[in-house]
Design a protein around this nucleic acid. Structure first.
Lengths: 250, 250
DNA sequence: CGGCGTATTGACTGAACTCAATTCAGGTGG
DNA sequence: CCACCTGAATTGAGTTCAGTCAATACGCCG
């Protein structure tokens, strides 16, 4: 299929061939123009024909499923650099909406798949993405299955803190672009419980609010301990301050 | 990497090359001998070097994670034909133990990966497996995030009913090889809640017990409705009996 | 038949949910 | 510039579903 059918399929390669021999998976998306979505706008819907894969280049996306009587489960938030719709099923498993204004690149599945065929070096990167997604899903199952409200919120804050660490190298600040309802639907809680839990963390001096969507982490060690995934290893060290390499990997 | 490095890597291919040009991914495992595990025995542990992938040929496996203070989350049960350890991370994301006596084939990751390189036709099958795993994980997130105890148990029973449907083509019987504790740790509940919920389903005549680990589904439509993922489509039909194609797909 | 682990049942508790009232912040228009 | 307005967030009061703790029943195996 690799070489035999190549000439027959060449007409579809359009986008992908414009960027010959990409080294990184993201580069496959460079050839297509960026699309813009306003906050709240939908990108695709669960059950749609899964014709495209996407790369977020700006903004934040939420992916979610809706079940009976309108209950919504947000299975993830996606940031710049993340790929969406990787699952090679013929229909999307979830819906995707913009949380903030979003810019992304949309690539038809066929040229994407062909790029993977054509440049074997990209395949491990693709695997790695899918495996990361799987690992994240598993962690989320743990959170939803066994963690208390406080542990869930703490885990979420740590997640965002880690993610933003690249952008804001110094200063333990977190920005929450999404509404409390989004957080609640991600954490398997209600708005009220999320709100109350944050209030409690603030009261205890673990975090301190800087507007409703920004917080400073005053006690990173404490916050980490509250996540509840303490391996015995981490548990023993986080009482002491200045173990920053351990607390803030990467 | 495909052809250039082939001769250099040929010495590792041992197992895979004994079954030349397999058509199905499972056949890659045929060359290695089967190993046996007793009920309760561990196959690998979270954090171990992920050197192997496995194919279950008999019995049932549970995969799980342990978090702080010993809380356990079972992320899945694996049956004959299922592959385990597919994630191409360098360490296992979870532990695996035999629920029942298990026989499985263990294949080193390298020949497995090489088989995928060598026979491109296997790759879509591999993708499909990983994507199925992803889809299952997402459904589980929905279950854990938003479903009531009753919905969780009903969903679990339907899952097993569907899975066993291949083996027991007629008669709506479910076999639960795992303990109530396993079920509880899979469904994010306690033993007592699982037990009470089952009792309630029995009292309402939805299912009827045939020993502690076997049940007959008396009202499949009702059970499906109780799962709580009712699309409006399924919701409208399941009041009526004899819509078996819809209720029991495949 | 007795013993032990698993499952069930019961009584009570509590964490998170629901419903409702208030406060806050950001945007608009006078 | 400020006052108002609106949706979002917070806070409060009461409820509920599932968890906890404890007692009992079942069933399997020696």
């Amino acid at each position: 299929m690799l070489s035999v059918a190549y000439s027959a399929e060449a007409k579809h390669v359009t986008a992908a061939r414009l960027a010959p021999q990409p080294e990184r998976l993201e580069e496959v998306f460079c050839a297509v123009p960026r699309e813009s979505f306003e906050a709240g706008e939908g990108v695709f819907w669960e059950g749609d024909q899964a014709d495209h894969v996407f790369k977020v280049s700006e903004g934040v996306l939420r992916v979610f499923k809706i079940i009976a009587d309108g209950r919504r489960v947000i299975t993830g938030f996606l940031y710049a650099g993340d790929l969406v719709g990787l699952s090679l099923k013929d229909r999307y498993l979830y819906s995707a909406e913009a949380v903030t204004p979003v810019r992304l690149r949309r690539l038809a599945r066929k040229p994407f798949a062909e790029a993977l065929e054509k440049w074997p070096d990209l395949r491990p990167q693709f695997f790695a993405r899918v495996c990361d997604e799987m690992a994240t899903a598993q962690d989320q199952m743990v959170l939803l299955s066994r963690k208390s409200a406080e542990e869930r919120v703490a885990t979420f804050l740590m997640l965002l803190a880690r993610r933003l660490h690249g952008c804001h190298p110094i200063g333990r600040r977190i920005h929450l672009p999404m509404s409390r309802l989004d957080m609640a639907d991600y954490l398997g809680l209600t708005i009220e419980t999320v709100s109350r839990t944050i209030t409690k963390l603030v009261a205890r001096g673990v975090i301190s609010p800087e507007g409703r969507h920004d917080f400073a982490i005053c006690k990173p060690g404490k916050l980490l301990a509250l996540c509840g995934d303490g391996d015995s290893y981490e548990d023993t060290i986080d009482r002491e301050p200045k173990m920053r390499q351990a607390i803030w990997p990467h």
